[in-house]
């Protein structure tokens, strides 16, 4: 009987801990990407990324239409032809920190590996992303640099533009999340 009571109390403490877990969020995170080929390089920046972090779990939502390009024609082609933003308005990522196994957030910038599902252009892909996480006086800072392959997400580039648009797109994430 005593054994059951202890287990029950522990389960209750765990459940309460989970329900009061601190959640950090932002609606103004930044994601940028660069395409580099021998003929042309271009970059687009998006500072309307929503993100949340709590207890090793991470979630990102990236409105495709909020990427700003330098050239209007590129922006239009990106949104309407390649990303089909009215059909797939958001890219998203949902995952958990898998490395280090005993991860605990601290004021030190720590390298982490996050495993989860990256959804771009309506296509889900299991991904492992390496980045850093740091608890600062301003909030939790998440940073990551990784590369995606356009064909993995069924993003088609017309054959006459393959020399100008790289298949490998470098993505940079930088977000400051505040306690909610």
């Amino acid at each position: 009987m005593k054994k059951y009571t202890i287990v029950l109390v522990m389960a209750l403490i765990f459940a309460i801990g989970q329900s009061f877990a601190q959640v950090f969020k932002t609606s103004t995170g930044e994601v940028s990407f660069i395409s580099k080929t021998d003929f042309e390089s271009f970059e687009a920046v998006n500072n309307q990324v929503t993100a949340a972090y709590s207890l090793k779990k991470l979630q990102f939502r990236v409105p495709i239409n909020a990427f700003i390009f330098e050239k209007k024609l590129m922006q239009t082609h990106f949104q309407e032809n390649y990303m089909e933003s009215s059909k797939f308005p958001n890219a998203s990522f949902k995952g958990s920190i898998i490395s280090p196994e005993d991860f605990k957030i601290s004021s030190k910038e720590q390298p982490v590996t996050v495993k989860g599902t990256l959804n771009i252009h309506g296509v889900d892909k299991e991904s492992e992303i390496v980045g850093t996480i740091q608890n600062t006086p301003d909030g939790v800072v998440l940073k990551a640099n990784f590369t995606i392959i356009l064909s993995d997400y069924q993003i088609g580039v017309p054959s006459n533009l393959t020399a100008k648009i790289s298949q490998n797109i470098d993505i940079k994430v930088n977000a400051l999340l505040l306690s909610k």
């Binding site: 309307q48 709590s54 991470l58 939502r61 409105p63 239409n65 909020a66 700003i68 308005p89």
Partner: peptide
């Protein structure tokens, strides 16, 4: 503004539990 669209929570356990409507430019 130009509308980026609406995003609603997909699962009950989503950390992003709010509906977001965003605009740019």
């Amino acid at each position: 503004c130009v509308c980026n669209g609406i995003a609603k929570p997909e699962d009950p356990d989503d950390l992003l539990s709010e509906t977001t409507i965003s605009f740019n430019r």
